[in-house]
Design a protein around this nucleic acid. Sequence first.
DNA 1: GACCTGCTGCGGTTTG
Length: 715
Amino acid sequence: MSFDQLSEPIRRYIRDKRWEQLRPIQIAAINRILSSNDNYILASRTASGKTEAAFLPILSKVDFTEGGVQVLYISPLIALINDQFYRVEELCKYLDIPVTKWHGEANRTLKEKLIKNPDGIVLITPESIEAMFVNKPFNLRQLFSNLKYVVIDEIHSFLGSDRGTQLKSLLSRLQAECDKPFSIVGLSATIGDYNEAKKFTGNEEHTKVLLDKTTKDINSVFRYFKEDGMELPSDLLADLYQETKDNKVLIFPNSRGRAEEVAVKLKKISARSHGHSNYFSHHSSVDKEVREYVEYFAKNNKRQNFCISCTSTLELGIDIGSVEEVVQIDATHSIASLIQRLGRSGRKEGESSNLFLYATGKWSLLQSLACWLLYKEGFIEPPSTNDRPYDILLHQALSIAKGHSGIAIDQLVKELKANFAFNEIDVSEIRQIVDHLIEINFLEKIQNEVIIGMDGERTVNSREFYSMFRTEENFKVASGGNKIGEIPLTPQIAPDQNILLSAKIWKIIDVDFKAKKIEVIPAKDGKKPLFYGGGSMIHQRIREKMLEVLYCDDQYDVLNEACDKEITAMRKEFLKFKIGNIELERPLLVSDHKVEFFSFTGTKVNRTLGMLFDYYEIKYEFNEYQSKFDLKISETDFLKMWKKLAEPLSNIDEFVEKQIEEKPFLLGFSKWGEYLPVKFKVELLKSKYYDLNETRIYISKIIPIINSAELTEVN
DNA sequence: GACCTGCTGCGGTTTG
């Protein structure tokens, strides 16, 4: 009956589209959104019609004759806004209301037109909302005071991230500008913690989750080709070529350098075998226009096959049409990421997804298998949360001060305290942070008011002010006026060096340090580009699953023979630890010259273990892929120390403070943290980088189990 | 052996 509840223009839209029936998530959303003003999280797989599930009832319900912008759609990507624009605009033609794109690359004239005549729907990014608060506070009020609905697309990408905290704060500030409360509808295919998603709206009680758990059939195959050296094994590439040459394919090789290597090498093989030449790479270092061309090609070529070798740039919901196969080379770092990538294929009704998982090392194979098994169990890692985001609060304090061009200190503190993004931060803490901003001249105190201070001007007036993330400095790469991409300056970048970029091979002929430009010409052979990698976090559940695989005798029909052989060999190696309870025990390899602890836990606990080893001056080296500590201490000393590590430390804050002094890059994860008082920097590091609580729980329960006497190596 | 995301306002020049 959902159809009948919709307004006449919307029903006409559905009839014109010749949809035979509405999807389950759409029916649920129509019934609920039309009958209440609650907030909703719509959770269902990719290509299940979530956007329409939100917009059909919202556009039926909202009275656009009232004027003002009534619906705000927020997206993490400009590309997604541009994509959704056409879909939403088509729908809005039936209602005769305008749709306006508002982001950094959107048409300025159209933005000005909206300001003169606020109406309809606006599609925007969080950073553009931030910029409006800073530069156009009066226009913002005039635009949004009548706002009824906020739709947040790909809401999982905001959960637990700094960008998400910023968006939460902006929603809270936006609400304060509106005459009546607006409702929020969040969309996602990969939510790991529904309560976190509900909290995101600022009103957990009145936020309901509508969940469609239906999944697609997936044909998945694991293959193993051991890597020897820096480059991909040629038998892997030959196999990959055979599997992909007659299809529309996305390949995810986990890094930009490797994405180039895969694209160039497959293209070479294809040229030799007289196959198609539609091999592309797609990642943040490929020129934006080139990337748009690749997306356009994939979407609009119905007949020709193609192969795009990419990073997470093609992970979120941008529509690139029909993809028949997804290839993942080595393990993803999260199940959420695996699901997003899977969602890129078999988007049409009735199509299944085809997934190839290649591994080039045994630990990667084990991790990849663990991710696959957890996916089959329905597990998605929950976002890491931070109740007291002091760094984002500091940024928002500057944003409010600038937007108000002078604000009473009490008023500023009050606004920050009332902001639901900063619920858990005390008034006294807010005051300390504001006082510190005055002390470092980021704010200037004039009687009871503050304005932006001398040293804050440059920061607040810069383009970089609106975002929560840092970006590396890049050099533009061009060949005779053709833009190819942008890459960071590494020792590899010098005249006469050959590099791969944008699925082609280039020789560097000139590096202009002043203009930050690299001039190149086509070449025949070259090396993959190098990048300084940041780290991403592995959830402890993945590592626990890896251990579980090692200590069970399950057989997996997705593995080919080579994978089976490798897993069997690893199981045999780990047999020498008599581990009976994988919840409580971890391998400790002791031989005459070394002591190695396999922690099988997540990134944060490993980091914290490392910090505690530092604290007790235990020397070690850490291997992230094996989740293993090589300890420079005897086994007896280690076992004696182990439980002691869990004891509370009265001087841990001083220790962390000293760490920050010695290694300031530890705070590099926070763009705004460097302006905080020291005490808050320590808190930020303790809560966001380390996890002392989880680590104490881990140490208290875990017993290291030493191997039996024979001296075989595990590595 | 590691990913990605976004961006004002102003003054100047060029183009239809």
